Amino acid sequence: MLRNPTMKDVAHEARVSLKTVSRHVNGETNIDPALADRISAAIVKLGYRRNLSAASLRPGWTSKTIGLVISDLANPYYSTLARAIESVADAAGYLVTIASSEEEGMRHDRLVDRLMEQQVDGLIVVPPRNAGRDWSDVASPIPPLVFLDRPVPFADADAVLADNAGGAREATLALVSAGSRRIAFVGDSPDIYTMRERHAGYAAALAEAGIEADDSLTITTAHTREQAEREVGAVLRDGSADAVIAANNRSTIGALLAFQAAGRRLPLVGFDDFETALLGSPPVSVVSHDIELMGCTAADIVLGRLKGDTSAFTTRVLPTQLILRGSEKPEPA
Protein backbone atom coordinates (compact mmCIF):
# COMPACT_ATOMS: atom_id res chain seq x y z
CA MET A 1 0.00 0.00 0.00
CA LEU A 2 1.33 3.43 -0.90
CA ARG A 3 2.14 5.64 2.07
CA ASN A 4 1.16 9.28 2.29
CA PRO A 5 3.99 11.69 1.49
CA THR A 6 5.57 13.48 4.44
CA MET A 7 7.21 16.86 4.91
CA LYS A 8 10.55 15.07 4.68
CA ASP A 9 9.58 13.89 1.20
CA VAL A 10 8.62 17.45 0.23
CA ALA A 11 11.91 18.79 1.61
CA HIS A 12 13.86 16.19 -0.39
CA GLU A 13 11.93 16.92 -3.60
CA ALA A 14 12.29 20.71 -3.20
CA ARG A 15 15.94 20.49 -2.09
CA VAL A 16 15.32 22.56 1.05
CA SER A 17 15.46 21.92 4.78
CA LEU A 18 12.62 20.28 6.68
CA LYS A 19 12.32 23.42 8.81
CA THR A 20 11.74 25.57 5.71
CA VAL A 21 8.98 23.24 4.51
CA SER A 22 7.37 23.36 7.95
CA ARG A 23 7.42 27.17 7.96
CA HIS A 24 5.88 27.28 4.47
CA VAL A 25 3.16 24.75 5.29
CA ASN A 26 2.21 26.72 8.40
CA GLY A 27 1.72 29.95 6.49
CA GLU A 28 4.89 31.86 7.26
CA THR A 29 5.62 34.39 4.53
CA ASN A 30 9.22 35.44 5.25
CA ILE A 31 10.60 32.69 3.00
CA ASP A 32 12.67 33.25 -0.12
CA PRO A 33 10.15 33.32 -3.02
CA ALA A 34 12.24 30.92 -5.10
CA LEU A 35 12.28 28.39 -2.25
CA ALA A 36 8.55 28.86 -1.66
CA ASP A 37 7.88 28.15 -5.35
CA ARG A 38 9.95 24.97 -5.22
CA ILE A 39 8.13 23.82 -2.09
CA SER A 40 4.73 24.54 -3.63
CA ALA A 41 5.66 22.61 -6.78
CA ALA A 42 6.87 19.65 -4.68
CA ILE A 43 3.64 19.63 -2.65
CA VAL A 44 1.56 19.48 -5.84
CA LYS A 45 3.76 16.84 -7.44
CA LEU A 46 3.76 14.56 -4.38
CA GLY A 47 0.15 15.22 -3.32
CA TYR A 48 1.24 16.16 0.20
CA ARG A 49 -1.42 17.05 2.77
CA ARG A 50 -0.74 18.26 6.27
CA ASN A 51 -1.86 15.79 8.99
CA LEU A 52 -3.52 18.10 11.50
CA SER A 53 -4.62 15.22 13.73
CA ALA A 54 -1.04 14.16 14.24
CA ALA A 55 0.14 17.74 14.52
CA SER A 56 -2.33 18.47 17.29
CA LEU A 57 -0.63 15.92 19.50
CA ARG A 58 2.59 17.91 19.50
CA PRO A 59 3.09 20.74 22.01
CA GLY A 60 2.09 24.11 20.61
CA TRP A 61 0.07 22.64 17.73
CA THR A 62 -3.71 22.43 17.39
CA SER A 63 -6.21 20.53 15.28
CA LYS A 64 -7.76 23.83 14.12
CA THR A 65 -11.12 22.13 14.69
CA ILE A 66 -14.19 23.05 16.77
CA GLY A 67 -16.68 20.36 17.73
CA LEU A 68 -20.39 21.23 17.53
CA VAL A 69 -23.06 18.98 19.04
CA ILE A 70 -26.62 20.02 18.23
CA SER A 71 -29.98 18.34 18.77
CA ASP A 72 -31.24 17.71 15.24
CA LEU A 73 -29.50 18.82 12.07
CA ALA A 74 -32.75 18.29 10.11
CA ASN A 75 -34.38 21.14 12.05
CA PRO A 76 -33.85 24.44 10.18
CA TYR A 77 -33.28 26.19 13.52
CA TYR A 78 -30.17 24.11 14.23
CA SER A 79 -28.91 24.11 10.66
CA THR A 80 -29.01 27.94 10.77
CA LEU A 81 -27.03 27.89 14.04
CA ALA A 82 -24.49 25.50 12.55
CA ARG A 83 -24.04 27.61 9.42
CA ALA A 84 -23.42 30.75 11.49
CA ILE A 85 -20.85 28.99 13.68
CA GLU A 86 -19.15 27.55 10.63
CA SER A 87 -18.86 30.96 8.95
CA VAL A 88 -17.10 32.51 11.95
CA ALA A 89 -14.85 29.50 12.48
CA ASP A 90 -13.90 29.31 8.81
CA ALA A 91 -12.87 32.96 8.78
CA ALA A 92 -10.51 32.17 11.65
CA GLY A 93 -9.07 29.11 9.91
CA TYR A 94 -11.01 26.49 11.89
CA LEU A 95 -13.01 23.52 10.65
CA VAL A 96 -16.30 22.68 12.43
CA THR A 97 -17.16 19.03 13.03
CA ILE A 98 -20.95 18.74 13.51
CA ALA A 99 -22.89 15.91 15.15
CA SER A 100 -26.51 15.47 16.28
CA SER A 101 -27.42 14.07 19.68
CA GLU A 102 -31.08 13.42 18.71
CA GLU A 103 -31.87 14.61 22.28
CA GLU A 104 -30.37 11.39 23.71
CA GLY A 105 -28.08 11.82 26.70
CA MET A 106 -25.96 8.71 26.14
CA ARG A 107 -25.48 9.53 22.46
CA HIS A 108 -24.55 13.10 23.39
CA ASP A 109 -21.93 11.84 25.85
CA ARG A 110 -20.42 9.49 23.24
CA LEU A 111 -20.20 12.33 20.73
CA VAL A 112 -18.50 14.63 23.23
CA ASP A 113 -15.96 11.92 24.11
CA ARG A 114 -15.27 11.21 20.44
CA LEU A 115 -14.72 14.86 19.63
CA MET A 116 -12.36 15.28 22.58
CA GLU A 117 -10.48 12.13 21.53
CA GLN A 118 -10.02 13.79 18.15
CA GLN A 119 -8.35 16.71 19.93
CA VAL A 120 -10.84 19.42 18.96
CA ASP A 121 -9.69 22.82 20.17
CA GLY A 122 -13.12 23.92 21.39
CA LEU A 123 -16.64 22.63 21.95
CA ILE A 124 -20.04 24.22 21.34
CA VAL A 125 -22.86 22.09 22.70
CA VAL A 126 -26.66 22.18 22.69
CA PRO A 127 -27.41 20.08 25.80
CA PRO A 128 -29.88 17.24 25.11
CA ARG A 129 -33.37 16.99 26.58
CA ASN A 130 -32.50 13.72 28.29
CA ALA A 131 -29.27 14.59 30.07
CA GLY A 132 -26.56 11.97 30.42
CA ARG A 133 -23.68 12.39 32.83
CA ASP A 134 -22.80 15.59 34.64
CA TRP A 135 -20.12 17.69 32.99
CA SER A 136 -18.22 17.55 36.27
CA ASP A 137 -17.71 13.83 35.52
CA VAL A 138 -16.04 14.49 32.16
CA ALA A 139 -12.32 13.79 32.35
CA SER A 140 -10.05 16.83 32.20
CA PRO A 141 -8.79 18.68 30.33
CA ILE A 142 -11.99 19.98 28.72
CA PRO A 143 -11.34 22.42 25.85
CA PRO A 144 -13.04 25.83 25.82
CA LEU A 145 -16.76 25.05 26.09
CA VAL A 146 -19.92 27.00 25.27
CA PHE A 147 -23.44 25.79 26.01
CA LEU A 148 -25.81 27.00 23.33
CA ASP A 149 -29.57 27.61 23.61
CA ARG A 150 -29.83 25.70 26.91
CA PRO A 151 -27.79 26.19 30.10
CA VAL A 152 -26.09 23.51 32.20
CA PRO A 153 -25.02 23.89 35.85
CA PHE A 154 -21.29 23.66 35.11
CA ALA A 155 -19.07 26.48 36.32
CA ASP A 156 -16.25 26.15 33.79
CA ALA A 157 -18.15 27.08 30.63
CA ASP A 158 -19.83 30.00 28.91
CA ALA A 159 -23.43 29.96 27.68
CA VAL A 160 -25.43 31.80 25.02
CA LEU A 161 -29.22 31.83 25.42
CA ALA A 162 -32.28 33.66 24.12
CA ASP A 163 -34.81 35.47 26.30
CA ASN A 164 -37.35 32.68 25.95
CA ALA A 165 -39.59 33.70 28.86
CA GLY A 166 -39.71 37.34 27.81
CA GLY A 167 -40.55 36.45 24.23
CA ALA A 168 -43.37 34.08 25.20
CA ARG A 169 -44.79 36.69 27.58
CA GLU A 170 -44.93 39.29 24.80
CA ALA A 171 -46.56 36.82 22.41
CA THR A 172 -49.24 35.85 24.92
CA LEU A 173 -50.04 39.46 25.75
CA ALA A 174 -50.37 40.22 22.03
CA LEU A 175 -53.04 37.50 21.75
CA VAL A 176 -54.79 38.83 24.84
CA SER A 177 -54.76 42.34 23.38
CA ALA A 178 -56.38 40.98 20.22
CA GLY A 179 -59.23 39.54 22.29
CA SER A 180 -58.19 35.96 23.11
CA ARG A 181 -58.74 34.54 26.60
CA ARG A 182 -58.37 30.75 26.31
CA ILE A 183 -54.91 30.43 24.83
CA ALA A 184 -53.44 26.99 24.24
CA PHE A 185 -49.69 26.51 24.70
CA VAL A 186 -48.50 23.86 22.23
CA GLY A 187 -44.91 22.70 22.51
CA ASP A 188 -42.39 19.99 23.28
CA SER A 189 -41.45 18.35 26.57
CA PRO A 190 -40.92 20.54 29.67
CA ASP A 191 -37.70 18.57 30.15
CA ILE A 192 -36.28 20.98 27.57
CA TYR A 193 -35.08 24.24 29.11
CA THR A 194 -36.44 26.41 26.29
CA MET A 195 -39.90 24.87 26.65
CA ARG A 196 -39.94 25.46 30.41
CA GLU A 197 -38.89 29.08 29.94
CA ARG A 198 -41.42 29.73 27.19
CA HIS A 199 -44.22 28.18 29.24
CA ALA A 200 -43.16 30.31 32.23
CA GLY A 201 -43.47 33.44 30.08
CA TYR A 202 -46.89 32.32 28.85
CA ALA A 203 -48.09 31.68 32.40
CA ALA A 204 -46.71 35.03 33.62
CA ALA A 205 -48.58 36.86 30.85
CA LEU A 206 -51.87 35.15 31.73
CA ALA A 207 -51.43 36.14 35.38
CA GLU A 208 -50.56 39.69 34.35
CA ALA A 209 -53.75 39.86 32.27
CA GLY A 210 -55.87 38.47 35.11
CA ILE A 211 -56.65 35.24 33.24
CA GLU A 212 -56.77 32.03 35.26
CA ALA A 213 -54.48 29.38 33.83
CA ASP A 214 -56.09 26.14 32.61
CA ASP A 215 -53.71 23.18 32.72
CA SER A 216 -55.72 21.40 30.01
CA LEU A 217 -54.57 24.09 27.58
CA THR A 218 -50.88 23.33 28.18
CA ILE A 219 -49.86 20.73 25.60
CA THR A 220 -46.28 19.46 25.88
CA THR A 221 -46.44 16.34 23.70
CA ALA A 222 -45.82 18.01 20.34
CA HIS A 223 -42.36 16.58 19.70
CA THR A 224 -42.87 16.60 15.92
CA ARG A 225 -44.78 18.55 13.31
CA GLU A 226 -47.24 15.67 12.96
CA GLN A 227 -47.91 15.54 16.71
CA ALA A 228 -48.48 19.30 16.80
CA GLU A 229 -50.94 18.99 13.93
CA ARG A 230 -52.90 16.32 15.81
CA GLU A 231 -52.96 18.30 19.04
CA VAL A 232 -54.09 21.53 17.41
CA GLY A 233 -56.64 19.60 15.37
CA ALA A 234 -58.11 18.25 18.62
CA VAL A 235 -58.27 21.78 20.07
CA LEU A 236 -60.14 22.96 16.98
CA ARG A 237 -62.64 20.12 17.21
CA ASP A 238 -63.47 20.46 20.90
CA GLY A 239 -63.44 24.27 20.93
CA SER A 240 -61.43 24.36 24.16
CA ALA A 241 -59.17 27.24 23.04
CA ASP A 242 -59.61 30.49 21.16
CA ALA A 243 -55.92 31.02 20.30
CA VAL A 244 -52.61 29.14 20.09
CA ILE A 245 -49.07 29.85 21.19
CA ALA A 246 -46.84 27.47 19.20
CA ALA A 247 -43.66 27.10 21.20
CA ASN A 248 -41.27 26.23 18.36
CA ASN A 249 -41.15 26.23 14.57
CA ARG A 250 -42.34 22.64 14.17
CA SER A 251 -45.34 23.29 16.41
CA THR A 252 -46.16 26.37 14.33
CA ILE A 253 -46.09 24.39 11.10
CA GLY A 254 -48.21 21.65 12.68
CA ALA A 255 -50.76 24.26 13.77
CA LEU A 256 -50.93 25.70 10.25
CA LEU A 257 -51.52 22.23 8.79
CA ALA A 258 -54.31 21.63 11.32
CA PHE A 259 -55.90 24.95 10.34
CA GLN A 260 -55.68 24.02 6.67
CA ALA A 261 -57.30 20.62 7.27
CA ALA A 262 -60.13 22.17 9.31
CA GLY A 263 -60.76 25.00 6.89
CA ARG A 264 -60.55 27.57 9.65
CA ARG A 265 -57.94 28.99 11.96
CA LEU A 266 -57.41 30.36 15.45
CA PRO A 267 -55.28 33.38 16.34
CA LEU A 268 -51.69 32.16 16.36
CA VAL A 269 -48.25 33.34 17.40
CA GLY A 270 -45.27 31.04 16.83
CA PHE A 271 -41.82 30.94 18.42
CA ASP A 272 -38.85 31.06 16.01
CA ASP A 273 -39.27 32.60 12.59
CA PHE A 274 -39.07 30.55 9.41
CA GLU A 275 -39.02 31.38 5.69
CA THR A 276 -42.52 30.17 4.79
CA ALA A 277 -44.12 32.11 7.66
CA LEU A 278 -44.66 34.92 5.16
CA LEU A 279 -46.65 32.78 2.73
CA GLY A 280 -49.82 32.39 4.80
CA SER A 281 -52.90 34.56 4.69
CA PRO A 282 -52.37 36.27 7.01
CA PRO A 283 -48.60 35.74 7.44
CA VAL A 284 -47.63 34.11 10.73
CA SER A 285 -46.80 36.35 13.68
CA VAL A 286 -43.71 35.10 15.51
CA VAL A 287 -41.35 35.64 18.38
CA SER A 288 -38.01 35.82 16.67
CA HIS A 289 -34.49 35.91 17.93
CA ASP A 290 -31.39 36.28 15.85
CA ILE A 291 -30.32 32.66 15.44
CA GLU A 292 -27.30 33.64 13.37
CA LEU A 293 -26.20 36.08 16.08
CA MET A 294 -26.51 33.32 18.66
CA GLY A 295 -24.27 31.02 16.61
CA CYS A 296 -21.76 33.75 15.82
CA THR A 297 -21.61 34.79 19.49
CA ALA A 298 -20.88 31.22 20.59
CA ALA A 299 -18.14 30.86 17.99
CA ASP A 300 -16.61 34.21 18.95
CA ILE A 301 -16.50 33.16 22.61
CA VAL A 302 -14.73 29.88 21.84
CA LEU A 303 -12.22 31.58 19.55
CA GLY A 304 -11.61 34.25 22.19
CA ARG A 305 -10.85 31.59 24.79
CA LEU A 306 -8.47 29.91 22.36
CA LYS A 307 -6.67 33.23 21.92
CA GLY A 308 -6.13 33.49 25.67
CA ASP A 309 -9.25 35.16 27.09
CA THR A 310 -9.26 34.24 30.80
CA SER A 311 -12.15 36.45 31.93
CA ALA A 312 -14.89 35.02 34.14
CA PHE A 313 -17.29 32.60 32.48
CA THR A 314 -20.58 34.28 31.59
CA THR A 315 -24.11 33.56 30.34
CA ARG A 316 -25.19 35.91 27.58
CA VAL A 317 -28.95 36.29 27.07
CA LEU A 318 -29.86 37.64 23.65
CA PRO A 319 -33.11 39.58 23.17
CA THR A 320 -36.15 38.39 21.25
CA GLN A 321 -38.43 40.37 18.95
CA LEU A 322 -42.19 40.05 18.56
CA ILE A 323 -43.11 40.36 14.87
CA LEU A 324 -46.86 40.86 14.41
CA ARG A 325 -48.08 40.05 10.90
CA GLY A 326 -51.79 39.58 11.50
CA SER A 327 -52.18 35.94 12.52
CA GLU A 328 -52.55 37.00 16.17
CA LYS A 329 -56.00 38.40 15.34
CA PRO A 330 -59.26 36.40 15.01
CA GLU A 331 -60.66 35.61 11.59
CA PRO A 332 -63.07 38.28 10.35
CA ALA A 333 -66.68 37.45 11.21
Rank of each mutant, 00 (worst) to 15 (best):
T315I: 13
Q321P: 02
P282I: 00
T314G: 06
R316Y: 04
T315D: 07
V287L: 08
S281L: 11
A247M: 14
L268M: 11
A277C: 12
N248T: 13
D300A: 10
S285R: 01
V317A: 02
I301H: 03
A277L: 10
L256D: 01
V302P: 02
L266P: 14
T320L: 04
T310M: 07
G326R: 07
L324V: 11
S327P: 12
G263P: 08
A243D: 14
D309H: 06
A243M: 11
R325E: 02
L279Q: 00
R265Y: 05
G270H: 11
G270M: 11
N248G: 13
N249V: 01
Q321H: 15
I245K: 06
D290P: 04
D309Y: 06
V317Q: 03
T310L: 12
G263L: 07
I323T: 11
L303Y: 09
L324A: 06
F271A: 03
G254E: 10
D290H: 03
L266K: 12
R316T: 15
A312P: 15
R325L: 09
V284I: 15
E292R: 12
A262G: 12
L318G: 07
V286H: 04
F274T: 00
R305P: 15
D273Y: 04
L306C: 04
L318N: 10
L293D: 10
H289E: 05
R264F: 03
V244E: 12
S281W: 13
T297H: 04
A299F: 13
R250L: 14
L257W: 07
P282V: 00
P319F: 08
D309C: 06
E292K: 06
T252E: 05
P319T: 04
S327Y: 06
G280Q: 11
G254I: 12
A298F: 15
A247Y: 14
L266A: 08
L322Q: 07
F313Q: 09
T297Y: 04
D290S: 10
F259N: 11
L318C: 09
R325S: 03
F274W: 13
R264G: 06
L306N: 12
L279H: 07
P283D: 00
P267L: 04
S281N: 15
L257T: 10
A258R: 03
